[in-house]
């Protein structure tokens, strides 16, 4: 089976700081892949590059046979709306919108009518145990609930890839596990592949497979073997 997403030889520097020095990544459809590494190793940068949020200085990223590195902002935005979902440590919800509106946002940006979008969002929120919280604003939710809203939003457009960068980084271990379980379960149900960046092995253990990033280079033991 052809990989869904391939990143090869990624280099990226921020001024004098080198974040990536030849990192690779291969993601198959439907699999959950963890990227581990100590802080500052470049694992988040690898995710950002792979998702087209940042452009690498050199290297190629192929998504579904297309070169991500050569797409325009409009094309990449469309990709983010339709094919990708994101769950970050925090700050990705629009604080002014309700949970329901936040979840429906990607659909609405894609031109789907409000009522249809919100119906789908309601269903997803129910599945993630947030039925009573649809009208709450992010500020009124606990950290774990916020992350579940973020998971719902990431999955609403039935993406092919869900990018999660330290999704439990701001949570206590119990809510962290809840979020991870819901994330992995929902991703498997909808057949989305997951790229999971974490420094925590217990979180990485939710993945099917893991790679380690150290000093901007990735180690994929499974491929090396």
């Amino acid at each position: 089976m052809n990989p869904l997403l391939i990143a090869e030889g990624l280099h990226k520097s921020y001024g004098p700081t080198t974040a990536l020095a030849g990192a690779d990544l291969v993601l198959h459809a439907g699999e959950i892949l963890s990227i581990m590494g100590p802080s500052g190793s470049g694992k988040s940068t690898l995710l950002h590059c792979a998702a087209g949020l940042t452009s690498p200085d050199s290297g190629h990223i192929t998504y579904d046979g297309r070169l991500l590195t050569e797409m325009s902002d409009v094309e990449r935005s469309a990709l983010r709306r339709r094919e990708f979902g994101f769950v970050f440590q925090f700050g990705q919800l629009v604080p002014e919108l309700t949970a329901l509106e936040n979840v429906a946002l990607p659909l609405r940006l894609d031109g789907i009518r409000k009522r249809a979008a919100e119906r789908r969002a309601t269903g997803l929120l129910d599945r993630l145990g947030l039925a009573g919280k649809a009208r709450s604003r992010p500020g009124e939710l606990s950290g774990g609930q916020q992350q579940r809203v973020a998971v719902a939003r990431a999955l609403i457009a039935e993406p092919k890839v869900l990018f999660a960068d330290e999704p439990t980084g701001a949570l206590d271990s119990v809510s962290g596990e809840q979020v991870m379980e819901m994330l992995t379960r929902s991703a498997r149900q909808s057949g989305a592949a997951v790229v999971l960046v974490t420094h925590d092995a217990r979180i990485a253990a939710y993945a099917d497979r893991g790679i380690v990033v150290r000093d901007g280079r990735s180690l994929d033991r499974a491929r090396a073997r």
């Binding site: 990449r76 469309a78 990705q92 990607p106 940006l109 894609d110």
Partner: peptide
């Protein structure tokens, strides 16, 4: 500043620059 953060969050879920 709040507006800008809001817009950044919208960019993440797929709003392009013109949006």
């Amino acid at each position: 500043d709040a507006r800008d953060r809001r817009l950044a969050a919208i960019r993440l879920v797929g709003g392009d620059n013109r949006a």
